[in-house]
Design a protein around this nucleic acid. Structure first.
Lengths: 295, 295
DNA sequence: CGGTGTTCATCTATTTACGTATAGATGGCC
DNA sequence: GGCCATCTATACGTAAATAGATGAACACCG
């Protein structure tokens, strides 16, 4: 009861929770199913209560087991980050996890990362695209590209410019439907917008009177899908002017009515400043995104 | 190289880093020194580089070893939090870690926690007093009492009132030196203030013209030491009016010149809402601090 | 200058944990 | 309804990690 259980039990627990079965976890972990069973039994004995209900087609967590999920996932992320940080600190090789929004990751980062890869062939990049501002302190990533100023200490942050959001449409769509010039014009068009209203989205939408969720002819939370819909001539939607400028078929509409600037920040752990490969990725992102945002 | 090392190696590494010797770590971990040696050797082999330089009076970390410190500490904190969360979720027993500022922890919390302990004899409290806003997401504590509104999601937060800061002094001091009434009066008095200027402190000090670091006759970053100095009649310093009111010898001076309100927040992990003992501590803190702050 | 208490490194016996093999049980499918 | 796939539970031999004991190097101190 008093002696702390092996930390390997935590890892096994985390994987069992994710896989939903002892056998599946064993495959992932490179162990055998009896060993996984022993680990779970030992952990349950250590905490003094059942963590799973066993059935013949897998395990499902009890409430108590479910309560430990985020802890276990945090351990997985942190240990992975530790191993990343530990490998080859002096030369630019190994793996760096970068997180960014979907649009930035799909539109801005690829050429930057391609150059980086060419300069450092031993460098591997893991790119996590998510609009959720995943917390660097939870070690889910080494470097983040964000659209908001980071609040936490212990982070190295550099503002590398800004991107501008504006309404855009395909020239073919505009040729068929006419070019809107007023706010009322916009409301008669096929608008592409968001599905769920986050506080940030609501702040932007409040600038355009009459613009409600019902006004959208296509609602999706995927920014990439919105961009694709704009390029396909579905209607008028919001995207970065820097991206639209690259496609000669895209035209910005009502630039005077709607224009929204978002800052671009590159953020990294303070601890990783001494790790050459992280420093290299950080600098490359700052330099490359600085060109994009004209900062 | 390819297979992930045992997580126990991380734990051993963290303790060796903290203790500074293989033998010391072995004592803490309840293992033998050869086992600790083997763990460190295995971890160094896994990451492909030395983490410590050995000497006959202990181990000192290399740069690479130091770079992993925060990761290792995070793992220690998280695994401890996992074990805490795992033990006895249904009844109010076990351990809850609470973090608060020094003054709040020393002046406001003790009676609240004493009542709590009386109500739940099987409940143990770990109290971490620190002015550093330790991040709940890093699992260094289960519940935090803060003076700023928490920004993160995934947290249960309740504003339970506010405390007011004001200048105070001992009546004996004022009898000898006179009672200041103007800002200029204050500058001729023996003032008790901070040593290092944080942004928050600077914001407060900018409200009082002429009040610079040099004006302080006693400079300390310990709020408790400041309070003790005020009570000892050293001079005039800032403390919470709610605390000063309890001591009949303390008198508030120039209340019209300087008065600063700080909100009181009780913050907890979302995950811990289902854990009875955390819920009990949260509610007790919210109720008890609500009486203090009159919120 | 020599005793004492550290430290880490090395060797060996033992305990512990693991993998292999197998049985029992359930759900899907022809 | 019988067959196959998948899952968990159990028993047993083996491999690996651990504890214990010992030696050598260094610092502290009288």
């Amino acid at each position: 009861m008093n002696t702390e259980p092996s930390w390997d039990l935590f890892r096994t627990f985390a994987i069992v929770l994710r896989e939903g079965s002892l056998s599946g976890a064993a495959r992932v972990l490179g162990m055998t199913q009896p060993s996984v069973t022993r680990h779970i039994d030992a952990l349950e004995a250590a905490v003094g209560g059942k963590l799973f209900v066993r059935s013949q087609r897998g395990l499902s967590p009890t409430d108590r087991g479910l309560a430990l999920r985020t802890h276990a996932e945090s351990l997985v992320a942190t240990s992975a980050a530790l191993l990343r940080a530990a490998s080859g600190a002096e030369d630019v090789s190994g793996t760096v996890r970068v997180t960014a929004s979907e649009v930035v990751g799909a539109e801005h980062l690829p050429p930057i990362l391609a150059d980086l890869r060419r300069a450092h062939p031993a460098l591997a990049i893991e790119l996590v695209l998510s609009n959720a501002v995943s917390d660097l302190l939870q070690r889910q990533a080494d470097i983040a590209v964000r659209m908001v100023e980071p609040a936490q200490q212990a982070l190295v942050a550099r503002k590398v410019g800004a991107v501008t959001l504006g309404f855009h449409a395909h020239r073919d769509y505009l040729a068929a439907r006419g070019v809107p010039t007023t706010a009322n014009d916009l409301l008669t068009q096929d608008l592409i917008g968001v599905d769920t209203e986050t506080p940030a989205v609501r702040a932007v939408m409040s600038r355009m009177p009459g613009l409600t969720r019902e006004a959208f002819a296509l609602r999706t939370d995927s920014d990439l899908a919105q961009l694709a819909a704009i390029k396909a001539g579905y209607g008028i939607g919001v995207c970065q002017v820097e991206i639209a400028r690259r496609d000669p078929n895209l035209v910005r509409v009502t630039p005077d009515l709607f224009s929204f600037d978002l800052p671009l920040w590159v953020v990294m752990h303070e601890d990783l400043r001494g790790v050459a490969r992280c420093r290299a990725v950080f600098d490359a992102l700052a330099e490359g995104l600085g060109r994009v945002g004209g900062g």
